[in-house]
Write a protein that binds this DNA or RNA. Structure first.
Length: 431
RNA sequence: GUGGGUGUAGCUCAGGCGGUUAGAGCGCCAGGUUGUGGUCCUGGAAGUCGGGGGUUCAAGUCCCCUCAUCCACCCCA
Protein backbone atom coordinates (compact mmCIF):
# COMPACT_ATOMS: atom_id res chain seq x y z
CA UNK A 1 0.00 0.00 0.00
CA UNK A 2 1.13 3.52 -0.65
CA UNK A 3 2.40 5.64 2.18
CA UNK A 4 -0.44 7.80 3.42
CA UNK A 5 2.07 10.33 4.72
CA UNK A 6 2.88 11.36 1.19
CA UNK A 7 0.10 13.87 1.56
CA UNK A 8 -3.14 14.70 -0.18
CA UNK A 9 -3.33 14.30 -3.90
CA UNK A 10 -3.93 17.38 -5.99
CA UNK A 11 -6.98 15.95 -7.71
CA UNK A 12 -10.29 17.73 -7.22
CA UNK A 13 -12.33 16.42 -4.33
CA UNK A 14 -15.43 15.64 -6.37
CA UNK A 15 -15.62 12.00 -5.44
CA UNK A 16 -13.97 11.60 -2.06
CA UNK A 17 -17.22 12.00 -0.21
CA UNK A 18 -18.76 9.15 -2.09
CA UNK A 19 -18.52 5.52 -1.10
CA UNK A 20 -15.24 4.23 -2.56
CA UNK A 21 -15.30 2.29 -5.81
CA UNK A 22 -16.92 -1.08 -5.44
CA UNK A 23 -18.57 -0.31 -2.11
CA UNK A 24 -22.12 0.70 -1.37
CA UNK A 25 -24.28 2.03 1.40
CA UNK A 26 -27.20 -0.09 2.46
CA UNK A 27 -29.97 2.32 3.32
CA UNK A 28 -33.23 1.72 5.21
CA UNK A 29 -35.58 -0.13 2.92
CA UNK A 30 -32.81 -2.19 1.42
CA UNK A 31 -31.49 -2.99 4.88
CA UNK A 32 -34.86 -4.47 5.81
CA UNK A 33 -34.27 -7.11 3.14
CA UNK A 34 -30.88 -7.82 4.66
CA UNK A 35 -32.53 -8.36 8.01
CA UNK A 36 -34.96 -10.77 6.42
CA UNK A 37 -32.14 -12.70 4.76
CA UNK A 38 -30.13 -12.93 7.93
CA UNK A 39 -33.12 -13.92 10.06
CA UNK A 40 -34.15 -16.59 7.57
CA UNK A 41 -30.65 -17.99 7.31
CA UNK A 42 -30.11 -17.82 11.04
CA UNK A 43 -33.24 -19.86 11.64
CA UNK A 44 -32.23 -22.50 9.10
CA UNK A 45 -28.78 -22.73 10.66
CA UNK A 46 -30.16 -22.89 14.19
CA UNK A 47 -32.46 -25.77 13.33
CA UNK A 48 -29.51 -27.63 11.81
CA UNK A 49 -27.43 -27.18 14.95
CA UNK A 50 -25.08 -24.44 13.81
CA UNK A 51 -23.72 -21.78 16.16
CA UNK A 52 -22.88 -18.23 15.09
CA UNK A 53 -19.22 -17.31 14.77
CA UNK A 54 -17.58 -13.94 14.22
CA UNK A 55 -14.01 -13.72 13.01
CA UNK A 56 -11.90 -10.57 12.52
CA UNK A 57 -12.15 -8.55 9.32
CA UNK A 58 -8.40 -8.85 8.93
CA UNK A 59 -6.02 -11.75 9.40
CA UNK A 60 -2.34 -12.46 9.02
CA UNK A 61 -1.34 -12.77 5.40
CA UNK A 62 -0.42 -16.42 5.81
CA UNK A 63 -3.99 -17.42 6.66
CA UNK A 64 -5.06 -16.66 3.11
CA UNK A 65 -1.85 -17.69 1.49
CA UNK A 66 -2.98 -21.21 2.40
CA UNK A 67 -6.06 -20.65 0.30
CA UNK A 68 -3.83 -21.14 -2.67
CA UNK A 69 -1.32 -19.45 -4.89
CA UNK A 70 -3.30 -20.61 -7.87
CA UNK A 71 -6.36 -18.59 -7.00
CA UNK A 72 -7.02 -15.08 -8.24
CA UNK A 73 -8.28 -14.23 -4.79
CA UNK A 74 -4.77 -14.65 -3.48
CA UNK A 75 -2.76 -13.75 -6.53
CA UNK A 76 -4.21 -10.40 -7.40
CA UNK A 77 -7.26 -9.49 -5.38
CA UNK A 78 -6.08 -9.24 -1.79
CA UNK A 79 -6.19 -6.00 0.16
CA UNK A 80 -2.98 -6.60 2.05
CA UNK A 81 -0.95 -4.05 3.97
CA UNK A 82 1.65 -3.56 6.65
CA UNK A 83 0.29 -2.22 9.92
CA UNK A 84 2.17 0.16 12.21
CA UNK A 85 3.79 -2.78 13.93
CA UNK A 86 5.13 -4.13 10.66
CA UNK A 87 2.67 -7.05 10.52
CA UNK A 88 1.54 -8.14 7.09
CA UNK A 89 -2.24 -8.24 7.26
CA UNK A 90 -5.04 -8.90 4.80
CA UNK A 91 -8.61 -7.65 4.78
CA UNK A 92 -10.57 -10.89 4.70
CA UNK A 93 -11.25 -11.86 1.05
CA UNK A 94 -13.19 -15.04 1.83
CA UNK A 95 -14.82 -16.76 4.74
CA UNK A 96 -13.53 -20.29 5.09
CA UNK A 97 -9.87 -19.70 5.92
CA UNK A 98 -10.58 -17.48 8.95
CA UNK A 99 -13.06 -19.99 10.36
CA UNK A 100 -10.57 -22.82 9.94
CA UNK A 101 -7.93 -20.62 11.57
CA UNK A 102 -10.29 -20.08 14.49
CA UNK A 103 -10.87 -23.81 14.68
CA UNK A 104 -7.16 -24.52 14.79
CA UNK A 105 -6.61 -21.81 17.38
CA UNK A 106 -9.37 -22.84 19.80
CA UNK A 107 -9.51 -26.59 19.09
CA UNK A 108 -13.20 -26.93 19.94
CA UNK A 109 -14.72 -30.40 20.09
CA UNK A 110 -15.81 -31.80 16.76
CA UNK A 111 -18.08 -31.84 14.95
CA UNK A 112 -17.79 -28.09 14.96
CA UNK A 113 -20.71 -26.53 13.10
CA UNK A 114 -20.77 -22.77 12.67
CA UNK A 115 -22.51 -20.18 10.52
CA UNK A 116 -21.50 -16.62 9.83
CA UNK A 117 -22.39 -13.32 8.25
CA UNK A 118 -19.19 -11.70 7.18
CA UNK A 119 -17.75 -8.84 5.17
CA UNK A 120 -15.35 -9.68 2.37
CA UNK A 121 -12.97 -7.46 0.49
CA UNK A 122 -11.38 -8.15 -2.85
CA UNK A 123 -9.60 -5.73 -5.13
CA UNK A 124 -11.39 -6.40 -8.40
CA UNK A 125 -13.02 -4.36 -11.10
CA UNK A 126 -16.61 -4.01 -9.90
CA UNK A 127 -19.69 -4.70 -11.94
CA UNK A 128 -23.22 -5.64 -11.14
CA UNK A 129 -23.19 -8.41 -8.57
CA UNK A 130 -19.47 -8.12 -7.99
CA UNK A 131 -18.20 -5.58 -5.53
CA UNK A 132 -14.96 -4.85 -3.75
CA UNK A 133 -16.77 -5.16 -0.48
CA UNK A 134 -19.45 -7.78 -0.32
CA UNK A 135 -21.13 -9.88 2.32
CA UNK A 136 -21.67 -13.57 2.65
CA UNK A 137 -23.81 -15.86 4.71
CA UNK A 138 -22.09 -19.16 5.15
CA UNK A 139 -21.56 -22.28 7.18
CA UNK A 140 -18.60 -24.52 7.92
CA UNK A 141 -18.46 -27.98 9.45
CA UNK A 142 -15.15 -29.21 10.81
CA UNK A 143 -14.40 -32.78 11.76
CA UNK A 144 -16.97 -34.75 9.80
CA UNK A 145 -15.81 -36.96 6.98
CA UNK A 146 -18.97 -38.76 5.99
CA UNK A 147 -20.76 -37.77 2.79
CA UNK A 148 -24.09 -37.32 4.55
CA UNK A 149 -22.78 -34.09 6.08
CA UNK A 150 -22.08 -32.82 2.56
CA UNK A 151 -25.71 -33.50 1.80
CA UNK A 152 -26.83 -31.69 4.97
CA UNK A 153 -24.75 -28.65 4.10
CA UNK A 154 -25.98 -28.48 0.52
CA UNK A 155 -29.55 -29.02 1.70
CA UNK A 156 -29.18 -26.12 4.14
CA UNK A 157 -28.35 -23.74 1.33
CA UNK A 158 -31.11 -25.14 -0.85
CA UNK A 159 -33.66 -24.85 1.96
CA UNK A 160 -32.61 -21.27 2.58
CA UNK A 161 -33.18 -20.34 -1.05
CA UNK A 162 -36.58 -21.98 -0.96
CA UNK A 163 -37.49 -20.18 2.27
CA UNK A 164 -36.88 -16.95 0.41
CA UNK A 165 -39.14 -18.01 -2.41
CA UNK A 166 -36.39 -18.54 -4.97
CA UNK A 167 -36.96 -21.26 -7.51
CA UNK A 168 -34.94 -20.31 -10.60
CA UNK A 169 -31.57 -21.74 -9.78
CA UNK A 170 -29.47 -24.79 -10.47
CA UNK A 171 -27.01 -26.81 -8.43
CA UNK A 172 -23.79 -28.01 -10.03
CA UNK A 173 -21.85 -30.77 -8.35
CA UNK A 174 -18.42 -32.20 -8.89
CA UNK A 175 -15.71 -34.13 -7.11
CA UNK A 176 -12.17 -32.84 -7.15
CA UNK A 177 -10.72 -36.05 -5.80
CA UNK A 178 -8.37 -36.65 -2.91
CA UNK A 179 -4.68 -37.03 -2.19
CA UNK A 180 -4.78 -40.54 -3.58
CA UNK A 181 -6.15 -39.84 -7.03
CA UNK A 182 -5.54 -36.17 -7.67
CA UNK A 183 -1.75 -36.22 -8.23
CA UNK A 184 -1.90 -38.91 -10.90
CA UNK A 185 -4.83 -37.21 -12.57
CA UNK A 186 -3.10 -33.83 -12.53
CA UNK A 187 -0.05 -35.36 -14.17
CA UNK A 188 -2.22 -36.85 -16.90
CA UNK A 189 -4.08 -33.59 -17.38
CA UNK A 190 -0.89 -31.61 -17.52
CA UNK A 191 0.51 -33.96 -20.11
CA UNK A 192 -2.63 -33.57 -22.18
CA UNK A 193 -2.53 -29.81 -21.93
CA UNK A 194 1.19 -29.39 -22.54
CA UNK A 195 0.80 -31.28 -25.79
CA UNK A 196 -1.76 -28.71 -26.88
CA UNK A 197 -0.20 -25.68 -25.24
CA UNK A 198 0.22 -23.59 -28.39
CA UNK A 199 -3.54 -23.68 -28.94
CA UNK A 200 -4.35 -22.43 -25.45
CA UNK A 201 -5.00 -18.81 -24.55
CA UNK A 202 -2.36 -16.89 -22.64
CA UNK A 203 -4.47 -17.05 -19.48
CA UNK A 204 -4.89 -20.78 -19.78
CA UNK A 205 -1.17 -21.32 -20.36
CA UNK A 206 -0.38 -19.39 -17.23
CA UNK A 207 -2.80 -21.55 -15.25
CA UNK A 208 -1.29 -24.68 -16.64
CA UNK A 209 1.65 -24.13 -14.32
CA UNK A 210 -0.13 -23.00 -11.16
CA UNK A 211 -3.29 -25.08 -11.31
CA UNK A 212 -4.04 -27.06 -14.46
CA UNK A 213 -7.51 -27.90 -13.19
CA UNK A 214 -8.49 -24.29 -13.71
CA UNK A 215 -7.80 -24.57 -17.42
CA UNK A 216 -10.83 -26.83 -17.65
CA UNK A 217 -13.34 -24.28 -16.50
CA UNK A 218 -12.09 -21.52 -18.77
CA UNK A 219 -15.09 -19.90 -20.38
CA UNK A 220 -13.12 -19.02 -23.47
CA UNK A 221 -14.48 -20.96 -26.42
CA UNK A 222 -11.11 -21.66 -27.97
CA UNK A 223 -9.94 -23.20 -24.71
CA UNK A 224 -13.12 -25.20 -24.42
CA UNK A 225 -12.46 -26.69 -27.85
CA UNK A 226 -8.89 -27.59 -26.98
CA UNK A 227 -9.95 -29.28 -23.75
CA UNK A 228 -13.09 -30.88 -25.15
CA UNK A 229 -11.71 -34.39 -24.82
CA UNK A 230 -9.38 -33.76 -21.92
CA UNK A 231 -9.35 -36.39 -19.16
CA UNK A 232 -11.86 -35.58 -16.43
CA UNK A 233 -11.34 -36.13 -12.74
CA UNK A 234 -14.71 -37.77 -12.24
CA UNK A 235 -13.43 -40.61 -14.44
CA UNK A 236 -10.26 -41.03 -12.41
CA UNK A 237 -11.49 -40.88 -8.83
CA UNK A 238 -10.00 -43.17 -6.23
CA UNK A 239 -12.41 -45.83 -4.93
CA UNK A 240 -12.85 -43.84 -1.71
CA UNK A 241 -13.59 -40.57 -3.49
CA UNK A 242 -15.82 -42.38 -5.92
CA UNK A 243 -17.86 -43.84 -3.10
CA UNK A 244 -18.03 -40.50 -1.29
CA UNK A 245 -19.27 -38.80 -4.43
CA UNK A 246 -21.83 -41.50 -5.08
CA UNK A 247 -23.18 -41.27 -1.55
CA UNK A 248 -23.49 -37.50 -1.79
CA UNK A 249 -25.49 -37.96 -4.97
CA UNK A 250 -27.61 -40.65 -3.38
CA UNK A 251 -28.37 -38.36 -0.44
CA UNK A 252 -29.35 -35.47 -2.67
CA UNK A 253 -31.58 -37.79 -4.65
CA UNK A 254 -33.20 -38.99 -1.43
CA UNK A 255 -33.97 -35.41 -0.43
CA UNK A 256 -35.31 -34.55 -3.86
CA UNK A 257 -32.67 -31.89 -4.48
CA UNK A 258 -32.01 -31.49 -8.18
CA UNK A 259 -28.43 -31.14 -9.36
CA UNK A 260 -26.29 -31.79 -12.34
CA UNK A 261 -22.84 -33.29 -12.31
CA UNK A 262 -20.46 -30.69 -13.69
CA UNK A 263 -17.16 -32.42 -14.38
CA UNK A 264 -15.44 -29.12 -15.18
CA UNK A 265 -16.56 -27.28 -12.08
CA UNK A 266 -13.34 -26.40 -10.29
CA UNK A 267 -13.97 -23.21 -8.29
CA UNK A 268 -11.44 -20.56 -7.59
CA UNK A 269 -9.95 -21.59 -4.29
CA UNK A 270 -7.20 -24.18 -4.27
CA UNK A 271 -8.13 -25.84 -1.01
CA UNK A 272 -11.13 -27.78 -2.27
CA UNK A 273 -11.00 -31.56 -2.20
CA UNK A 274 -13.65 -34.08 -3.16
CA UNK A 275 -17.08 -32.39 -3.10
CA UNK A 276 -17.37 -29.03 -4.85
CA UNK A 277 -20.66 -27.34 -5.67
CA UNK A 278 -22.13 -24.14 -6.92
CA UNK A 279 -25.62 -22.66 -7.02
CA UNK A 280 -26.37 -20.42 -10.00
CA UNK A 281 -29.43 -18.29 -10.62
CA UNK A 282 -31.12 -18.88 -13.95
CA UNK A 283 -33.14 -15.69 -13.53
CA UNK A 284 -30.03 -13.61 -14.16
CA UNK A 285 -28.63 -13.11 -17.62
CA UNK A 286 -25.62 -11.37 -16.14
CA UNK A 287 -22.26 -13.07 -16.03
CA UNK A 288 -22.36 -12.94 -12.24
CA UNK A 289 -24.92 -15.64 -11.69
CA UNK A 290 -23.34 -17.73 -8.94
CA UNK A 291 -25.46 -17.19 -5.86
CA UNK A 292 -23.58 -19.58 -3.63
CA UNK A 293 -20.85 -22.13 -3.67
CA UNK A 294 -18.60 -24.25 -1.57
CA UNK A 295 -17.08 -27.60 -1.06
CA UNK A 296 -14.91 -29.82 1.01
CA UNK A 297 -11.44 -28.79 2.25
CA UNK A 298 -10.01 -31.82 4.01
CA UNK A 299 -6.40 -30.61 4.18
CA UNK A 300 -6.83 -27.01 5.22
CA UNK A 301 -6.84 -27.42 9.02
CA UNK A 302 -3.71 -29.50 8.87
CA UNK A 303 -2.00 -26.99 6.58
CA UNK A 304 -2.67 -24.34 9.20
CA UNK A 305 -0.88 -26.37 11.82
CA UNK A 306 -3.92 -28.07 13.32
CA UNK A 307 -4.77 -31.73 13.56
CA UNK A 308 -5.86 -33.41 10.32
CA UNK A 309 -9.53 -32.45 10.20
CA UNK A 310 -11.93 -32.70 7.28
CA UNK A 311 -14.13 -29.73 6.58
CA UNK A 312 -16.93 -28.57 4.35
CA UNK A 313 -18.85 -25.34 3.92
CA UNK A 314 -20.33 -22.79 1.58
CA UNK A 315 -20.73 -19.06 1.14
CA UNK A 316 -23.72 -17.18 -0.23
CA UNK A 317 -23.23 -13.63 -1.47
CA UNK A 318 -25.90 -11.34 -0.07
CA UNK A 319 -25.67 -8.60 -2.68
CA UNK A 320 -25.85 -11.08 -5.51
CA UNK A 321 -28.63 -13.06 -3.88
CA UNK A 322 -30.70 -9.88 -3.67
CA UNK A 323 -30.18 -9.25 -7.36
CA UNK A 324 -31.38 -12.78 -8.07
CA UNK A 325 -34.36 -12.21 -5.78
CA UNK A 326 -35.24 -9.05 -7.71
CA UNK A 327 -35.02 -10.98 -10.97
CA UNK A 328 -37.49 -13.50 -9.60
CA UNK A 329 -39.71 -10.86 -8.05
CA UNK A 330 -39.38 -12.20 -4.53
CA UNK A 331 -38.35 -10.40 -1.35
CA UNK A 332 -39.68 -6.99 -2.40
CA UNK A 333 -38.53 -3.80 -0.71
CA UNK A 334 -41.12 -2.92 1.90
CA UNK A 335 -41.32 0.63 3.15
CA UNK A 336 -41.52 0.97 6.90
CA UNK A 337 -45.06 1.78 8.03
CA UNK A 338 -46.15 3.48 11.18
CA UNK A 339 -49.08 2.02 13.08
CA UNK A 340 -50.21 5.18 14.82
CA UNK A 341 -49.54 8.82 13.95
CA UNK A 342 -49.86 11.56 16.53
CA UNK A 343 -51.12 14.97 15.40
CA UNK A 344 -50.23 17.95 17.54
CA UNK A 345 -53.22 20.28 17.52
CA UNK A 346 -51.63 22.69 19.97
CA UNK A 347 -49.15 24.05 17.50
CA UNK A 348 -46.29 23.32 19.84
CA UNK A 349 -47.77 25.28 22.74
CA UNK A 350 -48.35 22.21 24.89
CA UNK A 351 -46.57 18.89 25.33
CA UNK A 352 -49.70 16.74 25.35
CA UNK A 353 -48.96 15.29 21.92
CA UNK A 354 -45.42 14.42 22.92
CA UNK A 355 -46.73 12.65 26.00
CA UNK A 356 -49.25 10.60 24.00
CA UNK A 357 -46.57 9.74 21.43
CA UNK A 358 -44.42 8.15 24.09
CA UNK A 359 -47.26 6.40 25.85
CA UNK A 360 -48.12 4.76 22.56
CA UNK A 361 -44.51 3.79 21.91
CA UNK A 362 -44.17 2.40 25.42
CA UNK A 363 -47.36 0.50 24.72
CA UNK A 364 -45.69 -1.26 21.82
CA UNK A 365 -46.95 0.67 18.80
CA UNK A 366 -44.86 1.96 15.93
CA UNK A 367 -45.76 5.58 16.48
CA UNK A 368 -44.73 8.59 14.43
CA UNK A 369 -45.29 12.31 14.39
CA UNK A 370 -44.29 15.02 11.95
CA UNK A 371 -41.36 17.27 12.62
CA UNK A 372 -40.76 20.82 11.53
CA UNK A 373 -43.77 22.51 13.09
CA UNK A 374 -46.09 21.76 10.21
CA UNK A 375 -49.64 23.01 9.97
CA UNK A 376 -52.52 20.82 11.03
CA UNK A 377 -53.20 19.97 7.43
CA UNK A 378 -49.54 19.29 6.81
CA UNK A 379 -49.48 16.90 9.74
CA UNK A 380 -52.52 15.10 8.37
CA UNK A 381 -50.76 14.67 5.05
CA UNK A 382 -47.77 13.26 6.86
CA UNK A 383 -50.08 10.90 8.74
CA UNK A 384 -51.49 9.66 5.45
CA UNK A 385 -48.03 9.19 3.97
CA UNK A 386 -46.80 7.30 7.03
CA UNK A 387 -49.15 4.44 6.34
CA UNK A 388 -50.48 4.59 9.90
CA UNK A 389 -53.89 3.07 10.41
CA UNK A 390 -54.82 5.55 13.13
CA UNK A 391 -54.17 9.23 13.55
CA UNK A 392 -54.40 10.33 17.17
CA UNK A 393 -55.34 14.00 17.19
CA UNK A 394 -54.25 15.71 20.36
CA UNK A 395 -55.96 19.10 20.34
CA UNK A 396 -57.63 21.81 22.36
CA UNK A 397 -61.23 20.81 21.74
CA UNK A 398 -60.79 17.26 22.99
CA UNK A 399 -58.39 18.25 25.74
CA UNK A 400 -61.17 20.12 27.50
CA UNK A 401 -62.83 16.75 27.97
CA UNK A 402 -59.60 14.89 28.76
CA UNK A 403 -59.83 13.15 25.42
CA UNK A 404 -58.19 12.83 22.01
CA UNK A 405 -59.70 12.22 18.59
CA UNK A 406 -58.76 9.00 16.84
CA UNK A 407 -59.19 8.86 13.12
CA UNK A 408 -59.23 5.65 11.11
CA UNK A 409 -57.12 6.63 8.12
CA UNK A 410 -58.61 3.99 5.86
CA UNK A 411 -62.31 4.62 6.47
CA UNK A 412 -62.14 8.23 7.59
CA UNK A 413 -64.23 7.41 10.67
CA UNK A 414 -63.31 9.48 13.66
CA UNK A 415 -64.07 8.92 17.35
CA UNK A 416 -63.34 10.74 20.57
CA UNK A 417 -61.51 8.62 23.11
CA UNK A 418 -60.62 9.44 26.71
CA UNK A 419 -56.86 9.73 27.04
CA UNK A 420 -56.84 7.18 29.85
CA UNK A 421 -58.48 4.64 27.56
CA UNK A 422 -56.48 5.32 24.38
CA UNK A 423 -54.15 2.32 24.59
CA UNK A 424 -57.01 -0.07 25.27
CA UNK A 425 -59.12 1.45 22.53
CA UNK A 426 -56.38 1.01 19.94
CA UNK A 427 -55.43 -2.35 21.32
CA UNK A 428 -58.93 -3.71 20.80
CA UNK A 429 -58.84 -2.74 17.15
CA UNK A 430 -55.23 -3.12 16.13
CA UNK A 431 -54.00 -6.28 17.72
C1' G B 1 -5.56 -5.48 -15.46
C1' U B 2 -7.95 -5.05 -20.95
C1' G B 3 -12.06 -3.25 -24.14
C1' G B 4 -16.75 -0.56 -24.73
C1' G B 5 -21.21 2.47 -23.03
C1' U B 6 -23.08 6.34 -19.79
C1' G B 7 -22.70 10.90 -16.33
C1' U B 8 -28.16 17.28 -16.96
C1' A B 9 -33.03 18.72 -10.24
C1' G B 10 -33.99 13.88 -4.78
C1' C B 11 -35.61 9.91 -8.89
C1' U B 12 -36.44 8.71 -14.36
C1' C B 13 -35.04 11.41 -18.46
C1' A B 14 -35.58 15.62 -22.82
C1' G B 15 -32.16 19.24 -24.55
C1' G B 16 -31.48 19.74 -33.78
C1' C B 17 -25.74 21.62 -37.15
C1' G B 18 -22.39 25.28 -30.41
C1' G B 19 -26.24 30.96 -29.67
C1' U B 20 -30.26 34.72 -24.55
C1' U B 21 -32.69 33.71 -17.76
C1' A B 22 -31.22 24.78 -18.94
C1' G B 23 -36.67 21.85 -19.31
C1' A B 24 -40.57 17.72 -18.33
C1' G B 25 -42.83 13.85 -15.39
C1' C B 26 -42.68 11.89 -10.56
C1' G B 27 -41.31 13.29 -5.64
C1' C B 28 -40.91 17.38 -1.99
C1' C B 29 -43.01 22.10 0.26
C1' A B 30 -47.02 25.73 0.56
C1' G B 31 -51.88 27.49 -0.53
C1' G B 32 -57.29 26.37 -2.29
C1' U B 33 -60.80 30.69 5.03
C1' U B 34 -61.75 29.24 10.85
C1' G B 35 -58.29 22.19 13.55
C1' U B 36 -58.68 16.96 9.04
C1' G B 37 -54.89 13.21 4.77
C1' G B 38 -55.61 10.41 -0.04
C1' U B 39 -58.17 12.91 -5.74
C1' C B 40 -58.09 17.66 -8.18
C1' C B 41 -56.36 22.90 -9.02
C1' U B 42 -52.64 26.83 -8.26
C1' G B 43 -47.95 28.27 -6.79
C1' G B 44 -42.92 27.36 -4.93
C1' A B 45 -38.07 25.49 -3.63
C1' A B 46 -34.37 22.67 -5.77
C1' G B 47 -29.20 21.95 -10.97
C1' U B 48 -20.87 23.08 -9.34
C1' C B 49 -25.04 20.32 -16.70
C1' G B 50 -19.37 14.56 -12.73
C1' G B 51 -14.37 17.40 -12.37
C1' G B 52 -10.18 19.94 -14.86
C1' G B 53 -8.09 21.96 -19.17
C1' G B 54 -8.60 23.42 -24.40
C1' U B 55 -10.99 25.41 -29.13
C1' U B 56 -14.45 29.63 -29.90
C1' C B 57 -17.06 36.19 -29.83
C1' A B 58 -20.03 32.20 -27.41
C1' A B 59 -19.64 25.22 -24.79
C1' G B 60 -24.71 21.14 -21.37
C1' U B 61 -23.49 20.64 -26.81
C1' C B 62 -16.84 20.13 -30.05
C1' C B 63 -11.57 18.18 -28.44
C1' C B 64 -8.15 16.18 -24.56
C1' C B 65 -7.34 14.43 -19.66
C1' U B 66 -9.48 12.70 -15.24
C1' C B 67 -13.14 10.68 -11.74
C1' A B 68 -17.47 7.85 -11.07
C1' U B 69 -20.74 4.27 -12.83
C1' C B 70 -22.60 0.28 -15.99
C1' C B 71 -21.47 -3.81 -19.45
C1' A B 72 -18.11 -7.51 -21.40
C1' C B 73 -13.41 -10.24 -20.65
C1' C B 74 -10.94 -12.44 -16.38
C1' C B 75 -12.79 -14.44 -11.97
C1' C B 76 -16.15 -15.13 -8.34
C1' A B 77 -20.44 -14.58 -4.10
Amino acid sequence: MTDLAQGPSAEPATHVFQAPTGTRDVLPGESVRWQTLVATFSERARRAGFGLVHTPVFEHYEVFQRVGEGSDVVRKEMYDFLDKGGRRLVLRPEGTAPVVRAFVQHHPPTPWKVWYLSTHLRYERPQKGRYRQHHQLGVEVLGVDEPEIDVEVIALADGFYRDLGLSSYTLSLNSLGDAECRPAYLAALREFLVAREPALSADARERLDVNPLRVLDSKRESDAEVTADAPLLVDHLSPASREHFDRVRRGLDALGIDYEVAPRLVRGLDYYTRTAFEFASTALDAAQNAIGGGGRYDRLAEEMGGPPTPGIGFGIGIERLLIAADAEGVLPVVEARAEVFVIDGFGGEADDALVELHRLRDGGYVTERSTGGRSFKGQMKAAGASGARYAVIVGRHEAERGAVAVRDMDSGDQAEVARAELLDWIGERYR
